[in-house]
């Protein structure tokens, strides 16, 4: 008999609220992501998807609510530990212009607690670049010399460089052509499964959702309107999900014309 799976969620948000001046973005987000699960948050632009991720990372301080990792509140000290085993792919790549591709990928290995000799760090970076389908000859190029799709791959290589236990993906396919978007989706899925990492993705790309997600959460009006397995997004009778998934102009989500 196998041991029962750990019921404690890897990441849990309880009534997380955030406002910027008079603009209330999150009104009480409740969300749980199990260990090794891939959760995708969907929702329109400006509904607070990025703010939710930023609250977890600590880039934005929530006004209220509680964020837990492995069942314990994420205070400052625990967040530092959380970030040591964390990777993130940013929407625009967020690669450092002044560093070469391999220095970007090996950023953690070139400084701080995990510092390695440069040659060893470069070898590890090249290995990760290969994992995302890039050859060693891009290692010494600068990010500005690469196409958008290649920059995304480099960003992905940097996110997985230290084999993190949690990975966030912020709009991973935005700005890519459909073929490259499909390649990135496949890579994300493969890597997350292979590493057994817990993943959170925000996107409005339904193709990404179907490829990447185990579970989907619909964020609208500052709260999670629906969560469920990815297989149920087409059959659920939740009006928000139905309207969003089918791209309908009429429904509870207001569309400006």
């Amino acid at each position: 008999m196998s041991a029962p799976a750990d019921p404690t969620p890897k990441i849990a948000l309880h009534a997380v609220a955030k406002a910027f001046g008079p603009k209330v973005v999150l009104r009480g987000v409740d969300l749980e992501v199990a260990r090794g699960e891939s959760l995708v948050i969907i929702g329109g632009s400006g509904t607070g998807k990025s703010v939710t991720l930023k609250c977890i990372i600590g880039l934005v301080s929530p006004d209220g609510g509680r964020i837990e990792v492995d069942g314990a509140p994420l205070d400052r000290r625990r967040r530092e530990d959380f970030l040591r085993h964390f990777g993130m792919l940013f929407q625009g790549g967020a690669l450092f212009d002044s560093l070469t591709v391999w220095e970007n990928v090996a950023f953690r290995y070139l400084r701080g607690a995990e510092k390695l000799p440069r040659r060893k760090a470069r070898d590890l970076a090249v290995e990760k670049l290969r994992r995302v389908g890039l050859t060693a000859d891009v290692a010494d190029q600068y990010p500005a010399e690469l196409s958008g799709g290649m920059q995304k791959r480099v960003g992905l290589a940097r996110a997985i460089a230290t084999d993190p236990s949690v990975i966030f993906f912020d709009e991973p396919t935005t700005g890519l052509d459909p073929i490259m978007a499909d390649v990135i989706n496949d890579l994300i899925r493969e890597i997350v499964v292979e590493m057994g990492a817990t993943a959170m993705t925000i996107t409005h790309d339904m193709t990404s959702v179907r490829k990447i997600a185990d579970k989907v959460a619909m964020l609208h009006d500052g709260i999670i309107q629906w969560t469920g397995p990815v297989g149920e997004i087409d059959t659920t009778d939740n009006p928000y999900v139905h309207q969003f998934v089918n791209g309908l102009p009429d429904g509870p989500i207001e569309s400006l014309r």
């Binding site: 930023k54 990372i57 600590g58 880039l59 530092e80 970030l83 040591r84 964390f86 990777g87 993130m88 940013f90 929407q91 625009g92 967020a94 690669l95 450092f96 212009d97 950023f107 953690r108 400084r111 701080g112 607690a113 940097r158 966030f168």
Partner: peptide, 11 residues
């Protein structure tokens, strides 16, 4: 978002 990226890289 390069400054945000630094934070996610524990820097």
């Amino acid at each position: 978002e390069q400054i945000d990226a630094l934070v996610t890289l524990s820097t």
